[in-house]
C-alpha cells in the first residue's frame, strides 16, 4: 500500500506571552492508502492538534507534512482551503450542520465546492444517506428535526460527498449515546472496508477497536504503534491485543 500522508519531525508550539506550550514534539507518522488509523492518548496529549495539522487545517510550527509527496505546510490559507476541499473529509465531535439549511443543502454546500454537477451530487448524497442508514426523505428536513445520531450521520455524508482521499474524524462519537455510537462506528468500518482511508482521534477503547492501526500519543510524541489488522466483529483476540497495548502505554 502506498503512503499518502506523511509527517516528519512535526512540532507545534502554542505561545501565550512568554509562556510556550510544546504540544507536538518532533512527531513522525505515515498514513497509507486504505488505513484506518486511530490516534489515541490522554487528554491534552495533542491528538486533535495532530489531526488538524495533518489535515491542513492548522500549520505546524516546525516539520514537514507531505501529501502524496508534496509538502503542504507552506501553502497559503486559500491553497490549503482548496487542498482540504479536494482531498479531505471531516467529521467532528459536534455535527456543525447549518440549522438554516436543509439536510441536502448541508451536504451540497461541501459537494458543490468541488463538483458543479448538482444533479450528480444530489444522487450521490441520496446514495450516501441510504448507505448510512437514513431515509431519502430526510434530505428535505432541517437539522433541528433530526436526532443527534442522525445529524452525525448526515455530517459523515457531508465529509464523504467529495470522495476524499482521507476522512478525518475528531472524536465522532463523543457526543452520541451508545446506540448511535455503534451505528457511526459501523458506518466508518464499512467505508474503510470499501477502501476509504480514515484517520480518527478518540479516547474511547470501543471506537479504537475499529482501527487497523493505533498510534498512541503521550506528551506530544507517538510513544507506541499497534497494528490490529482488519476489523472483525466479536474478535476477542483483537480486543485483548489492543487492551494489552494500551496498558503498556499507560492508558
Amino acid at each position: 500500500m502506498s503512503t499518502i500522508l506523511q509527517a516528519k519531525d512535526l512540532c507545534k508550539t502554542f505561545s501565550n506571552g512568554s509562556v510556550q506550550q510544546h504540544v507536538l514534539k518532533n512527531l513522525n507518522i505515515e498514513i497509507e492508502q486504505g488505513d484506518f488509523v486511530v490516534i489515541m492518548g490522554s487528554s491534552g496529549s495533542g491528538k486533535s492538534t495532530l489531526l488538524y495539522a495533518l489535515s491542513g487545517m492548522d500549520r505546524p510550527t516546525l516539520g514537514e507534512i507531505n501529501f502524496k509527496g508534496e509538502a503542504i505546510q507552506n501553502y497559503s490559507n486559500d491553497k490549503l482551503a482548496v487542498f482540504r476541499r479536494k482531498n479531505c473529509g471531516f467529521v467532528f465531535q459536534q455535527n456543525y450542520l447549518n440549522d438554516t439549511m436543509s439536510i441536502l443543502d448541508n451536504i451540497l454546500v461541501s459537494g458543490l465546492l468541488v463538483n458543479k454537477d448538482a444533479k450528480a451530487l444530489t444522487d450521490e448524497a441520496l446514495r450516501l444517506l441510504k448507505a448510512v442508514g437514513l431515509d431519502e426523505n430526510i434530505s428535505k428536513k432541517f437539522p433541528t428535526q433530526l436526532s443527534g445520531g442522525e445529524c452525525q450521520r448526515v455530517a459523515m455524508v457531508r465529509g464523504l460527498i467529495n470522495k476524499p482521499l482521507i476522512l478525518f474524524a475528531d472524536e465522532p462519537t463523543g457526543a452520541l449515546n451508545s446506540k448511535n455510537t455503534e451505528n457511526v462506528l459501523n458506518i466508518l468500518t464499512e467505508f474503510n472496508r470499501q477502501g476509504q482511508t480514515i484517520v480518527m482521534v478518540t479516547h474511547d477503547m470501543k471506537s479504537a477497536r475499529r482501527g487497523s492501526k493505533i498510534a498512541y500519543l503521550a506528551d506530544g510524541v507517538i510513544t507506541g504503534n499497534c497494528n490490529l489488522g482488519e476489523y472483525k466483529s466479536g474478535d476477542k483476540e483483537r480486543h485483548e491485543k489492543l487492551r494489552t497495548f494500551l496498558q503498556e502505554m499507560g492508558w
Partner: peptide, 11 residues
Amino acid sequence: GVYKALGFTTG
C-alpha cells in the same frame, strides 16, 4: 469556521 474547514476560501 466550519465553512473554512470544509474548504471555503476567505474570498
